[in-house]
Design a protein around this nucleic acid. Structure first.
Lengths: 206, 206
DNA sequence: CATTTGTTTAACAATATTGTTAATTCTATA
DNA sequence: TATAGAATTAACAATATTGTTAAACAAATG
């Protein structure tokens, strides 16, 4: 039984995904995308108007992957703070293991074209501020109960994200400095699913 | 008493510092650097051979700033682990408040040209692996003494770096999502000098 | 003040990158 | 199998970006 090979149109998208994600918009060359897809550069303009058109498709996909990861957790209501943190961490690290360049790509592109965040953010159908303030309420409630040490919700949130995301953003630096092969780096991040949860909970639990 | 205005040569470097740091090599335009320096683009080639020449000067400076921050702490021997962590965190966040784009610039450029890390790393005169293994020894000693919970030194190190560096790398995302003005973001990071130290130490202390 | 030296620019040249067109090949199907 | 339509390419055109040159200008120096 044969695998139906991907259409040219899709192969271009896949290739663009790879090249844009590892190089960013400015450094990506349409020539490289074409080569990666095994086609002529002209064909790329045949299916998609221009570089920007493809980039927007790619960015939209990546953008959703990245932020869905952040938000999917908040949706689940009636869950204890600790449980929520564990799920968040697990979900986030799992996503980033699958797409190791995702975070760096999204962040650096937004840094260069901040309007991307507002444009694509609107389509997301989610209000970050609302979610954040919900989270803050839950944190404050736990503090009042005396189950956790005092901390601002937003700072806790930043800590969680930092611990999950940074290792992937800085992976080229970390891998070199710690002499980690691809596989060792993977194992190290795999470990972090538990380690980071524990680290955070140990820190805030009274 | 007048301020001696900077020489053209220096103005070009300053301008290049700004433009390269916020855009990265690929997206930076020599035209923009020239404009920022208030000169003609040709003059930029008069003082510096080409775009790469200037970039290398800038990158070297930024690279040192970034890694010096990481290493300066390790040098201080005979200091308790907790003390060391506090100094590391304080030094790192202080540096990044001064140069908010530093980390993102260095990391993304290394991600695109990994050879930069080895080239410039050699000039640094420091052996990261040695420093890291020293740190691991100290962590293991504390674990054996029972003063801290068990954790791999390298994972602890990654946690420390993550908590310090990530907020700056992701600042455009964080600022927008949390609706923070420049000043509020600054205050938030300023708070983190203490908050992060405490967060880490609370987490590992038995 | 004539001359030399270094600074600056405008105009040009070269290269790199993107985008378009017209001709060719392939595929389905009448 | 002739043909319409889509897929593909080579060649070309346009644009963007970088790099060079020769000439103008300014400052120092004899």
């Amino acid at each position: 039984m044969e695998l139906t090979e991907a259409s040219t149109e899709d192969r271009i998208l896949e290739a663009a995904m790879k090249v844009f994600t590892r190089k960013g918009f400015a450094a990506a060359r349409t020539e490289e995308i074409a080569k990666e897809a095994g086609i002529n550069r002209a064909l790329l303009h045949y299916y998609y108007r221009d570089k920007h058109t493809i980039f927007n498709l790619i960015f939209e996909t990546r953008f959703k992957e990245f932020f869905k990861g952040l938000f999917v957790i908040f949706e689940s209501d009636n869950i204890s703070l600790f449980e929520k943190i564990e799920r968040m961490v697990n979900h986030e690290i799992t996503t980033l293991i699958k797409h190791p360049h995702l975070a760096r790509f999204v962040i650096t592109e937004i840094a260069q074209q901040p309007e991307l965040l507002l444009e694509h953010g609107a389509k997301l159908g989610i209000n970050p501020r609302l979610l954040i303030s919900e989270f803050e309420k839950q944190v404050n409630a736990e503090i009042k109960l005396g189950t956790i040490r005092p901390i601002q919700g937003r700072q806790l949130l930043i800590n969680i994200m930092s611990l999950c995301i940074y290792p992937f953003v800085a992976s080229p630096v970390i891998q070199t400095m710690m002499s980690l092969q691809e596989k060792e780096f993977y194992e190290m991040t795999e470990q972090r699913k538990r380690l980071v949860s524990d680290f955070i909970i140990n820190s805030i639990k009274k």
